[in-house]
């Protein structure tokens, strides 16, 4: 695995010009709230070009929200999100769509269009955005399906696929336009060990072979340790730690150590805030 030197900034601080050139995604002091709750607070981070960068953290810390901010699906309430040199808040709908043609995203459940076959799902972006001949389109689609090992499943409907297969088809669809940036939302969730190993190798192989930048949102520490060049650990809407997986494993910060080692005791509580159990069971705190 090649370690890519990542340029990072402190929360809220503006990165230097050298950092801007190296980063394909940059967040400056981003704050996002929903339902009266602040999910991300003054968060700043950068994703270096050509790297596999992981965003980790316990459930409910805003990882998927962060990913949706990076792809322009959500707008921050404060701060800036810059992708490939474009400030997302300043882009028109057409500008955002032009940028998205250079991005791919793998959703947690695959998000395949259920009324189209596997082949048509992968061909969909090409049909929408290019004028390729049917023969050329077929060649491109079958090549991408071959890359994820599902050329033989081209005629199946999404309902006939297992969870792991659906995610691999979605990956073929995400790379069919040869994007510069590929974003993965929990790519390992619910996969059996064989599928997990294959997806893990695929992400690395695609990143290196196609010269992409990959952002992987996950809470699977072991898999990220094998895959990522650089990682951020999110906790309570802020970045608790950043560094290579090896650096994070040795991080002395209690919240990071608890997350990386999967410890029960630590600053991150397993229980949602509640009154004392004995008091509640005895009736004093009954709602």
């Amino acid at each position: 695995m090649t370690a890519v030197s990542a340029v990072t900034t402190d929360a809220g601080a503006a990165p230097g010009p050298a950092a801007t050139d190296a980063a394909i995604v940059r967040l400056d002091g981003v704050t996002y709230s929903a339902g009266g709750r602040t999910i991300l607070k003054q968060l700043s981070l950068e994703v270096p070009r050509g790297s596999v960068t992981a965003i980790m953290g316990p459930s409910g810390t805003g990882k998927t929200t962060l990913l949706r901010l990076m792809t322009g699906q959500l707008q921050p309430h404060a701060g800036r999100v810059v992708v490939a040199g474009e400030d997302l808040a300043r882009l028109s709908r057409d500008g955002l769509y032009s940028l998205r043609k250079r991005m791919g995203m793998l959703f947690q459940n695959g998000a395949l269009l259920t009324d189209l076959t596997v082949f048509e799902n992968v061909a969909y972006p090409l049909r929408e955005h290019t004028d390729l001949t049917e023969e050329l389109l077929r060649t491109v689609v079958l090549t991408k399906l071959q890359a994820v090992g599902l050329r033989g499943a081209a005629g199946l409907m999404p309902a006939e696929l297992s969870g792991g297969m659906a995610r691999r088809v979605a990956l073929a669809r995400a790379i069919v336009m040869d994007p510069e940036l590929l974003v993965y939302d929990e790519p390992f969730a619910g996969l059996d060990p064989i599928a997990l190993g294959m997806v893990l190798r695929l992400i690395r192989r695609l990143n290196d072979a196609l010269g992409l930048t990959s952002i992987v949102v996950s809470h699977d520490v072991q898999e990220i340790a094998q895959l990522a060049d650089y990682a951020y650990v999110l906790n309570a809407g802020t970045i608790a730690a950043r560094g290579t997986p090896a650096e994070l494993a040795a991080d002395p910060e209690p919240a990071v150590r608890q997350f990386m080692a999967g410890l029960e005791e630590g600053p991150v509580s397993f229980h949602y805030p509640a009154p004392d159990l004995a008091t509640e069971l005895l009736g004093a705190g009954r709602p």
Binding site: Q73, S98, M105, F107, L113, R173
Partner: peptide, 9 residues
């Protein structure tokens, strides 16, 4: 959301 991400309105 997947359509949005494929730059399809």
């Amino acid at each position: 959301s997947a359509l949005e991400m494929m730059a399809v309105d």
